[in-house]
Simulated scan of single mutants.
Amino acid sequence: MSGGTADVVVVGRGVSGLATALVLTERGHRVRVWSRDPAAATTSAVAGALWWPYRIEPEALVGDWALETLRVYEELAESPGETGVRMVAGTHGGERFSSLGPWAARLAGASEVAGGLRVTLPLIDMPVHLGWLERRLEAAGGVLEQRTVHSFEEAAAEAPVVVDCAGLGARALVPDPGMRPVRGQLVVVENPGVHEWFAEADPASSATTYFFPQPGGLVLGGTAEADDWRMDPDPRTAEAIVARCARVRPEIAGARVIAHRVGLRPSRDTGVRIDAEELPGGGLLVHNYGHGGAGVTVAWGCAEAAARLVG
Protein backbone atom coordinates (compact mmCIF):
# COMPACT_ATOMS: atom_id res chain seq x y z
CA MET A 1 0.00 0.00 0.00
CA SER A 2 1.53 3.32 -0.98
CA GLY A 3 0.68 6.87 0.13
CA GLY A 4 -2.90 7.91 -0.49
CA THR A 5 -4.19 4.37 -0.97
CA ALA A 6 -5.63 3.89 2.53
CA ASP A 7 -9.15 4.60 3.75
CA VAL A 8 -8.03 4.81 7.37
CA VAL A 9 -4.79 5.46 9.25
CA VAL A 10 -4.86 4.15 12.82
CA VAL A 11 -2.34 5.88 15.08
CA GLY A 12 -1.12 3.51 17.79
CA ARG A 13 -0.09 -0.14 17.91
CA GLY A 14 -1.11 -1.24 21.38
CA VAL A 15 -4.05 -3.57 21.95
CA SER A 16 -6.60 -0.79 21.33
CA GLY A 17 -5.00 0.31 18.06
CA LEU A 18 -4.61 -3.23 16.74
CA ALA A 19 -8.13 -4.31 17.70
CA THR A 20 -9.62 -1.18 16.10
CA ALA A 21 -7.54 -1.63 12.95
CA LEU A 22 -8.60 -5.28 12.73
CA VAL A 23 -12.31 -4.50 13.10
CA LEU A 24 -12.05 -1.87 10.35
CA THR A 25 -9.98 -4.07 8.04
CA GLU A 26 -12.35 -7.01 8.36
CA ARG A 27 -15.20 -4.67 7.42
CA GLY A 28 -13.49 -3.91 4.15
CA HIS A 29 -11.56 -0.72 4.91
CA ARG A 30 -8.02 -0.35 3.65
CA VAL A 31 -6.13 0.30 6.88
CA ARG A 32 -2.61 1.35 7.75
CA VAL A 33 -1.36 1.38 11.34
CA TRP A 34 1.26 3.97 12.22
CA SER A 35 3.28 3.70 15.40
CA ARG A 36 6.63 4.92 16.63
CA ASP A 37 7.13 1.65 18.51
CA PRO A 38 6.47 -1.98 17.57
CA ALA A 39 3.67 -3.66 19.51
CA ALA A 40 6.23 -5.47 21.68
CA ALA A 41 7.45 -2.08 23.00
CA THR A 42 4.03 -0.67 23.89
CA THR A 43 2.44 -0.45 27.33
CA SER A 44 0.10 -3.27 26.27
CA ALA A 45 3.05 -5.66 26.00
CA VAL A 46 3.90 -5.42 29.72
CA ALA A 47 0.33 -5.58 31.03
CA GLY A 48 -0.49 -8.31 33.55
CA ALA A 49 -3.61 -8.65 31.38
CA LEU A 50 -6.38 -10.14 33.46
CA TRP A 51 -9.79 -9.13 32.11
CA TRP A 52 -11.34 -6.78 34.69
CA PRO A 53 -12.68 -3.20 34.49
CA TYR A 54 -9.90 -1.67 36.61
CA ARG A 55 -9.19 2.07 36.90
CA ILE A 56 -11.39 3.06 33.97
CA GLU A 57 -14.28 5.49 33.45
CA PRO A 58 -17.03 6.35 32.53
CA GLU A 59 -18.72 3.66 34.58
CA ALA A 60 -21.97 3.94 32.58
CA LEU A 61 -20.26 2.77 29.38
CA VAL A 62 -17.43 0.56 30.61
CA GLY A 63 -19.62 -2.43 31.50
CA ASP A 64 -20.96 -2.90 27.98
CA TRP A 65 -17.52 -2.42 26.38
CA ALA A 66 -16.01 -4.91 28.82
CA LEU A 67 -18.71 -7.56 28.29
CA GLU A 68 -18.44 -7.24 24.52
CA THR A 69 -14.69 -7.80 24.85
CA LEU A 70 -15.23 -10.71 27.23
CA ARG A 71 -17.28 -12.53 24.59
CA VAL A 72 -14.44 -12.17 22.09
CA TYR A 73 -11.86 -13.49 24.57
CA GLU A 74 -14.05 -16.48 25.43
CA GLU A 75 -13.95 -17.44 21.75
CA LEU A 76 -10.21 -16.79 21.42
CA ALA A 77 -9.54 -18.94 24.49
CA GLU A 78 -10.49 -21.97 22.42
CA SER A 79 -7.03 -21.63 20.78
CA PRO A 80 -4.82 -20.42 23.65
CA GLY A 81 -1.50 -21.38 22.10
CA GLU A 82 -2.24 -19.28 19.05
CA THR A 83 -4.10 -16.30 20.56
CA GLY A 84 -2.47 -16.09 23.99
CA VAL A 85 -5.91 -16.04 25.67
CA ARG A 86 -6.79 -18.58 28.40
CA MET A 87 -9.74 -18.84 30.78
CA VAL A 88 -8.28 -19.16 34.29
CA ALA A 89 -9.97 -19.44 37.69
CA GLY A 90 -9.05 -17.13 40.52
CA THR A 91 -10.16 -14.84 43.33
CA HIS A 92 -10.68 -11.09 43.58
CA GLY A 93 -9.85 -10.43 47.21
CA GLY A 94 -12.38 -8.34 49.11
CA GLU A 95 -14.80 -7.94 46.20
CA ARG A 96 -18.57 -8.33 46.49
CA PHE A 97 -21.22 -8.16 43.78
CA SER A 98 -22.81 -5.23 45.60
CA SER A 99 -19.69 -3.09 45.09
CA LEU A 100 -19.50 -3.73 41.35
CA GLY A 101 -21.50 -2.49 38.37
CA PRO A 102 -24.39 -4.35 36.67
CA TRP A 103 -21.86 -6.04 34.36
CA ALA A 104 -20.73 -8.29 37.24
CA ALA A 105 -24.07 -10.12 37.23
CA ARG A 106 -23.23 -11.35 33.73
CA LEU A 107 -20.10 -13.22 34.83
CA ALA A 108 -20.86 -16.91 34.35
CA GLY A 109 -20.12 -19.05 37.39
CA ALA A 110 -18.96 -16.19 39.62
CA SER A 111 -19.62 -16.68 43.34
CA GLU A 112 -18.92 -14.88 46.59
CA VAL A 113 -16.54 -16.76 48.89
CA ALA A 114 -14.98 -15.92 52.24
CA GLY A 115 -12.00 -14.19 50.64
CA GLY A 116 -13.85 -12.27 47.96
CA LEU A 117 -15.26 -13.08 44.52
CA ARG A 118 -14.31 -16.33 42.84
CA VAL A 119 -14.56 -16.33 39.04
CA THR A 120 -13.01 -17.71 35.86
CA LEU A 121 -11.75 -14.88 33.62
CA PRO A 122 -9.62 -14.34 30.52
CA LEU A 123 -5.92 -14.12 31.31
CA ILE A 124 -3.92 -12.93 28.33
CA ASP A 125 -0.28 -13.56 27.49
CA MET A 126 0.19 -10.16 25.87
CA PRO A 127 3.33 -10.71 23.74
CA VAL A 128 1.64 -13.75 22.15
CA HIS A 129 -1.71 -11.97 21.81
CA LEU A 130 -0.24 -8.84 20.21
CA GLY A 131 1.63 -11.02 17.72
CA TRP A 132 -1.60 -12.85 16.88
CA LEU A 133 -3.42 -9.53 16.37
CA GLU A 134 -0.70 -8.32 14.01
CA ARG A 135 -0.70 -11.53 11.97
CA ARG A 136 -4.48 -11.54 11.69
CA LEU A 137 -4.48 -7.87 10.68
CA GLU A 138 -1.90 -8.41 7.95
CA ALA A 139 -3.70 -11.53 6.71
CA ALA A 140 -6.86 -9.41 6.34
CA GLY A 141 -4.97 -6.82 4.28
CA GLY A 142 -3.95 -4.28 6.91
CA VAL A 143 -0.49 -2.73 6.83
CA LEU A 144 1.76 -2.10 9.85
CA GLU A 145 4.23 0.77 9.61
CA GLN A 146 6.77 1.87 12.20
CA ARG A 147 6.48 5.61 11.82
CA THR A 148 6.58 8.48 14.29
CA VAL A 149 3.43 10.60 14.00
CA HIS A 150 3.95 14.32 14.61
CA SER A 151 0.36 15.42 13.93
CA PHE A 152 -2.99 13.98 12.89
CA GLU A 153 -2.91 16.27 9.86
CA GLU A 154 0.15 14.32 8.70
CA ALA A 155 -1.92 11.12 8.72
CA ALA A 156 -4.94 12.88 7.16
CA ALA A 157 -2.79 13.75 4.14
CA GLU A 158 -2.71 10.01 3.36
CA ALA A 159 -6.22 8.87 4.30
CA PRO A 160 -9.63 10.53 4.70
CA VAL A 161 -10.12 9.03 8.18
CA VAL A 162 -7.63 9.01 11.07
CA VAL A 163 -8.27 6.97 14.22
CA ASP A 164 -6.46 8.13 17.35
CA CYS A 165 -5.45 5.14 19.49
CA ALA A 166 -2.30 6.90 20.67
CA GLY A 167 -2.69 6.21 24.39
CA LEU A 168 -0.44 8.51 26.40
CA GLY A 169 0.75 9.95 23.09
CA ALA A 170 -2.63 11.71 22.84
CA ARG A 171 -1.43 14.07 25.57
CA ALA A 172 0.79 15.82 23.00
CA LEU A 173 -0.94 14.90 19.75
CA VAL A 174 -4.50 16.06 20.52
CA PRO A 175 -3.29 17.83 22.74
CA ASP A 176 -5.09 16.55 25.84
CA PRO A 177 -3.56 17.68 29.16
CA GLY A 178 -6.04 15.39 30.96
CA MET A 179 -3.97 12.39 29.89
CA ARG A 180 -1.79 11.20 32.76
CA PRO A 181 0.46 8.21 33.35
CA VAL A 182 -0.40 5.74 36.10
CA ARG A 183 2.79 3.83 36.64
CA GLY A 184 2.63 0.06 37.09
CA GLN A 185 5.58 -2.05 38.20
CA LEU A 186 5.65 -5.85 37.96
CA VAL A 187 7.98 -8.65 38.95
CA VAL A 188 8.13 -11.91 37.01
CA VAL A 189 9.29 -15.00 38.93
CA GLU A 190 9.63 -18.68 38.20
CA ASN A 191 6.24 -20.17 38.99
CA PRO A 192 6.51 -22.28 42.17
CA GLY A 193 3.32 -24.17 41.32
CA VAL A 194 0.61 -21.47 41.35
CA HIS A 195 -2.19 -22.28 38.88
CA GLU A 196 -4.84 -19.74 39.85
CA TRP A 197 -4.70 -15.95 39.79
CA PHE A 198 -5.33 -13.63 42.72
CA ALA A 199 -5.94 -9.89 42.76
CA GLU A 200 -6.72 -7.39 45.49
CA ALA A 201 -6.66 -3.61 45.22
CA ASP A 202 -6.28 -1.25 48.17
CA PRO A 203 -8.35 1.87 47.32
CA ALA A 204 -6.45 3.87 49.94
CA SER A 205 -3.03 3.08 48.50
CA SER A 206 -1.07 3.06 45.24
CA ALA A 207 -0.16 -0.56 45.99
CA THR A 208 -2.06 -3.55 44.64
CA THR A 209 -1.48 -7.24 45.20
CA TYR A 210 -1.86 -9.74 42.40
CA PHE A 211 -0.26 -12.76 40.80
CA PHE A 212 -1.07 -14.14 37.38
CA PRO A 213 0.27 -17.51 36.16
CA GLN A 214 1.50 -16.86 32.62
CA PRO A 215 3.35 -19.31 30.36
CA GLY A 216 6.61 -17.39 30.85
CA GLY A 217 6.41 -17.20 34.64
CA LEU A 218 4.31 -15.94 37.51
CA VAL A 219 3.60 -12.21 37.10
CA LEU A 220 3.51 -10.36 40.43
CA GLY A 221 2.14 -6.88 41.01
CA GLY A 222 1.78 -4.19 41.44
CA THR A 223 1.53 -0.43 41.70
CA ALA A 224 -0.77 2.34 40.48
CA GLU A 225 1.29 5.51 40.85
CA ALA A 226 -0.45 8.50 39.27
CA ASP A 227 1.58 11.16 37.41
CA ASP A 228 4.75 9.08 37.71
CA TRP A 229 6.72 8.88 34.45
CA ARG A 230 9.60 6.70 35.77
CA MET A 231 10.30 3.72 33.51
CA ASP A 232 13.10 2.16 35.55
CA PRO A 233 12.09 -0.55 38.04
CA ASP A 234 12.49 0.47 41.68
CA PRO A 235 14.23 -2.28 43.70
CA ARG A 236 12.41 -1.45 46.94
CA THR A 237 9.06 -1.48 45.17
CA ALA A 238 9.94 -4.87 43.69
CA GLU A 239 10.75 -6.27 47.14
CA ALA A 240 7.46 -4.95 48.50
CA ILE A 241 5.52 -6.54 45.62
CA VAL A 242 7.07 -9.95 46.26
CA ALA A 243 6.42 -9.63 50.00
CA ARG A 244 2.73 -8.75 49.51
CA CYS A 245 2.19 -11.67 47.13
CA ALA A 246 4.04 -14.04 49.49
CA ARG A 247 1.61 -13.15 52.27
CA VAL A 248 -1.11 -14.74 50.12
CA ARG A 249 1.01 -17.62 48.75
CA PRO A 250 4.13 -18.14 50.93
CA GLU A 251 5.93 -20.23 48.29
CA ILE A 252 6.32 -17.07 46.18
CA ALA A 253 8.89 -15.72 48.66
CA GLY A 254 11.57 -18.13 47.47
CA ALA A 255 10.82 -17.98 43.74
CA ARG A 256 13.67 -16.89 41.47
CA VAL A 257 13.16 -13.50 39.88
CA ILE A 258 13.18 -13.64 36.07
CA ALA A 259 12.40 -10.03 35.13
CA HIS A 260 11.21 -6.61 36.22
CA ARG A 261 8.71 -4.62 34.14
CA VAL A 262 7.30 -1.11 34.18
CA GLY A 263 4.41 0.26 32.13
CA LEU A 264 2.56 3.58 32.12
CA ARG A 265 -1.22 3.18 31.99
CA PRO A 266 -2.82 5.86 29.77
CA SER A 267 -5.28 7.38 32.23
CA ARG A 268 -7.58 10.31 31.39
CA ASP A 269 -9.17 12.65 33.94
CA THR A 270 -12.65 12.39 32.41
CA GLY A 271 -12.43 8.77 31.28
CA VAL A 272 -12.25 7.06 27.90
CA ARG A 273 -12.74 9.30 24.88
CA ILE A 274 -14.56 7.84 21.89
CA ASP A 275 -15.88 10.55 19.60
CA ALA A 276 -15.29 12.11 16.19
CA GLU A 277 -14.38 15.57 14.92
CA GLU A 278 -13.50 17.22 11.65
CA LEU A 279 -9.84 18.08 11.17
CA PRO A 280 -9.12 21.73 10.29
CA GLY A 281 -7.64 20.79 6.91
CA GLY A 282 -10.39 18.28 6.13
CA GLY A 283 -10.80 14.65 7.05
CA LEU A 284 -12.43 12.82 9.95
CA LEU A 285 -10.58 12.24 13.24
CA VAL A 286 -12.00 9.49 15.46
CA HIS A 287 -10.66 9.29 19.02
CA ASN A 288 -10.34 6.04 20.99
CA TYR A 289 -7.99 6.60 23.93
CA GLY A 290 -7.79 7.08 27.70
CA HIS A 291 -8.39 3.44 28.67
CA GLY A 292 -6.42 3.66 31.92
CA GLY A 293 -5.70 0.29 33.50
CA ALA A 294 -8.26 -1.61 31.43
CA GLY A 295 -7.25 -1.27 27.78
CA VAL A 296 -7.14 -5.05 27.39
CA THR A 297 -10.52 -5.37 29.13
CA VAL A 298 -12.42 -3.02 26.81
CA ALA A 299 -10.34 -3.33 23.62
CA TRP A 300 -12.96 -4.98 21.41
CA GLY A 301 -15.96 -3.06 22.75
CA CYS A 302 -14.17 0.24 22.21
CA ALA A 303 -12.94 -0.89 18.79
CA GLU A 304 -16.53 -1.53 17.72
CA ALA A 305 -17.64 1.86 19.08
CA ALA A 306 -14.86 3.64 17.20
CA ALA A 307 -15.59 1.67 14.01
CA ARG A 308 -19.21 2.81 14.10
CA LEU A 309 -17.99 6.41 14.00
CA VAL A 310 -15.79 5.64 10.99
CA GLY A 311 -18.84 4.24 9.19
Rank of each mutant, 00 (worst) to 15 (best):
G293S: 08
N288A: 13
G282F: 13
G283S: 13
E304A: 15
A306V: 01
A299W: 02
Y289I: 03
C302P: 03
R308N: 12
G281P: 00
G281S: 15
G295Y: 11
W300V: 02
G295N: 12
G292S: 06
W300A: 02
A299G: 05
R308S: 14
G281Y: 07
Y289L: 04
N288K: 04
G281V: 10
G295S: 13
H287C: 08
H287G: 05
G292N: 06
L284A: 08
G283A: 13
A307S: 14
P280A: 14
G281H: 14
A299P: 02
G283C: 13
C302T: 15
G281R: 15
N288V: 02
A303I: 05
P280S: 13
Y289V: 02
V296R: 04
H291T: 12
P280N: 10
G281Q: 15
V286C: 01
Y289D: 01
G282M: 12
T297L: 09
G293D: 06
H287Q: 12
T297Q: 10
G283T: 14
G283E: 06
T297I: 09
A306I: 00
C302F: 09
G301R: 05
A303Y: 04
E304Y: 04
E304T: 11
T297Y: 10
C302G: 12
A307L: 13
G283K: 08
L309I: 06
V286P: 00
G281E: 15
G295E: 08
L284T: 15
G295P: 11
P280T: 12
G282V: 13
V298S: 04
Y289M: 04
A306L: 02
H287R: 15
A305W: 03
V286K: 00
V286G: 00
A307C: 14
L309W: 02
G283H: 11
R308L: 12
G292C: 08
G282L: 12
V286N: 00
C302E: 00
V298A: 07
A299L: 07
A306E: 00
W300N: 01
G290T: 11
H287S: 14
H287Y: 11
Y289T: 01
A306K: 00
L284D: 04
G290K: 06
L284W: 08
W300P: 00
A306N: 01
R308D: 15
N288D: 13
G295M: 12
W300T: 01
G290L: 09
L285N: 09
T297E: 10
V286M: 00
G282D: 10
A294P: 06
G283D: 09
L309V: 06
L285G: 10
A305P: 05
A307V: 13
G282I: 13
T297G: 10
G293M: 07
A303N: 06
A305L: 07
G290Q: 08
G282Q: 12
A294H: 05
V298E: 01
L285I: 15
G290V: 12
G290E: 09
G282N: 11
A305Y: 03
G283I: 14
G301D: 05
A306D: 01
